[in-house]
């Protein structure tokens, strides 16, 4: 029983991270219909920036804020500098541009910081909470609770932004149809940049939250990105809520498979889940409408 609780809560706290990466991919997808393969790499880079700040000042929260700000700026700059020039070109070119960007930032991180594994701090203790003598495990540590709260709060704020603010309305309009939005007077270019910037911020948040576990090195976000992408695809790339649900399902599933079946099988289980979901829902669990590109 205790083992089961530890597996489950641990899975939830891992899943929240996949959800955060998934969420940032959804934001970009909605804004530009582009899948940003560099999202994990950018989060790795902002985590390096945060670590430099934390080491220099000794203040975790300053590093945290700087990382999020850097994510915001880098996300926007990336959209302006490399994504927009690719806009008129074949779609696949944008895919390759983001892959190129991933390779570029990983190379840059290697040049600047070396490939050493670096320890990365958590803001709170990682010791799991107990109820009496019953251990809840690492998924219930103050640090894990902070992770969950931070991601859910970010998702909630985004929901409020989309639903109740003029900017959010414009973003939704642009996502629905760029041309129509433009005709209605929306400055689609700016809105797109904002979408990328927000995604950069969420990505940076995910980086801050997961890096303590992966340690920090140029490839540290690679496989976390794959899981985040999978979470977003399971949930449906148009649905922020779907990314959260997809992340949680994936996190818990992987832990059960590791714990009860074997440590070589979680990725295969993830693949099976993904294929199964997509066979019945080709655009993910929470696809809003059955869109068909013609």
């Amino acid at each position: 029983m205790q083992e089961f609780v530890e597996f489950t809560l641990g899975g939830v706290s891992d899943g929240v991270i996949y959800a955060a990466i998934g969420l940032s991919l959804v934001l970009i997808w909605r804004a530009t219909r582009v899948l940003n393969y560099a999202q994990g790499g950018l989060a790795m880079f902002t985590s390096y920036i945060a670590l430099m700040v934390i080491n220099a000042t000794g203040n975790y929260w300053l590093g945290f804020v700087v990382a999020l700000a850097a994510g915001l700026v880098i996300g926007g700059v990336v959209e302006r500098v490399v994504i927009r020039p690719a806009a008129g070109k074949p779609h696949l070119n944008t895919v390759i541009v983001t892959i190129g960007l991933l390779i570029l930032v990983e190379g840059l991180a290697g040049i600047i910081y070396g490939s050493k594994n670096r320890s990365f701090p958590t803001p709170y203790s990682i010791v799991g909470a107990k109820i009496g003598s019953f251990d809840l495990g690492e998924g219930a540590s103050p640090s894990a609770i902070f992770t969950a709260v931070a991601v859910l709060a970010a998702a909630g704020l985004l929901a409020v932004l989309f639903r109740y603010t003029p900017v959010g309305l414009r973003m939704r309009a642009s996502a629905f149809s760029g041309t129509v939005a433009q005709l209605m007077g929306v400055r689609v270019g700016r809105i797109t940049t904002l979408g990328w910037a927000l995604a950069g911020l969420i990505g940076a948040l995910a980086g801050m939250l997961v890096t303590p576990q992966t340690f920090l090195y140029p490839n540290s976000m690679d496989s976390i990105f794959v899981l985040g992408f999978t979470a977003a695809v399971i949930g449906g790339l148009d649905s922020p809520g779907g990314a959260i649900v997809g992340g949680l399902i994936l996190g818990v599933l992987l832990n059960y498979v590791t714990g009860y079946v074997g440590s070589n099988l979680p990725e295969l289980a993830g693949l099976a889940l993904l294929i199964l979901v997509l066979m019945f829902r080709p655009s993910g669990l929470f696809a809003s409408t059955a869109t068909r590109q013609v």
Partner: peptide
């Protein structure tokens, strides 16, 4: 390892430029 990263960064850059 820093100099080993230079060609990696270079490849990424070339990829972006060629695509654009």
């Amino acid at each position: 390892s820093a100099s080993a990263s230079v060609p990696i960064a270079g490849y990424g850059l070339v990829l972006i430029i060629v695509m654009l």
